[in-house]
Simulated scan of single mutants.
Amino acid sequence: MKHEPRPGGDARLSGSGLTLAYDKRTITRDLDVVVPDGSFTVIVGPNACGKSTLLRALARILRPSAGSVVLDGEPIAGWPAKKLARTLGLLPQSSIAPEGISVADLVARGRYPHQGLLRQWSKEDERVVGESMAATGVEALADRSVDELSGGQRQRVWIAMALAQQTPLLLLDEPTTYLDIAHQIEILDLCARLHEEGRTVVAVLHDLNHAARYATHMIAMRDGRIVAEGEPAEVVTADLVETVFGLPCRVIDCPETGTPLVVPAARTRTPALS
Score class of each variant (00 low, 15 high):
residue 176 T to M: 05
residue 77 A to Q: 14
residue 113 P to Y: 09
residue 152 G to K: 04
residue 274 S to R: 10
residue 94 S to Y: 13
residue 168 P to Y: 12
residue 7 P to V: 09
residue 251 V to D: 11
residue 261 L to M: 15
residue 113 P to F: 00
residue 262 V to F: 11
residue 43 I to D: 02
residue 78 G to C: 12
residue 111 R to D: 07
residue 54 L to W: 06
residue 261 L to V: 02
residue 133 M to H: 04
residue 144 R to V: 03
residue 51 K to D: 09
residue 153 Q to W: 00
residue 270 T to E: 15
residue 166 Q to H: 01
residue 18 L to S: 03
residue 99 E to W: 12
residue 247 L to M: 04
residue 100 G to H: 02
residue 222 R to P: 02
residue 65 S to G: 15
residue 47 N to Y: 01
residue 252 I to V: 15
residue 34 V to K: 13
residue 26 T to I: 15
residue 22 Y to A: 05
residue 161 M to G: 00
residue 113 P to C: 04
residue 238 A to Q: 07
residue 192 A to Q: 15
residue 78 G to Y: 13
residue 75 P to L: 11
residue 60 R to E: 05
residue 74 E to W: 07
residue 173 D to L: 05
residue 219 I to Q: 07
residue 181 I to M: 15
residue 77 A to N: 12
residue 127 R to P: 01
residue 201 V to W: 07
residue 87 T to W: 07
residue 37 D to T: 10
residue 68 S to V: 14
residue 224 G to W: 00
residue 69 V to Q: 11
residue 265 A to F: 10
residue 74 E to A: 14
residue 64 P to A: 04
residue 238 A to I: 10
residue 152 G to P: 11
residue 142 A to I: 04
residue 117 L to F: 15
residue 18 L to M: 01
residue 34 V to E: 15
residue 92 P to V: 06
residue 57 A to N: 10
residue 137 G to W: 11
residue 55 L to T: 07
residue 179 L to H: 01
residue 85 A to S: 12
residue 164 A to Y: 01
residue 137 G to K: 03
residue 25 R to E: 10
residue 10 D to S: 14
residue 13 L to E: 03
residue 8 G to Y: 01
residue 106 L to F: 04
residue 34 V to Q: 12
residue 82 K to Q: 14
residue 38 G to R: 08
residue 82 K to F: 11
residue 88 L to G: 03
residue 55 L to P: 10
residue 97 A to M: 03
residue 4 E to C: 11
residue 75 P to V: 06
residue 21 A to R: 13
residue 27 I to W: 07
residue 190 L to C: 08
residue 36 P to V: 09
residue 56 R to M: 15
residue 98 P to D: 07
residue 88 L to E: 09
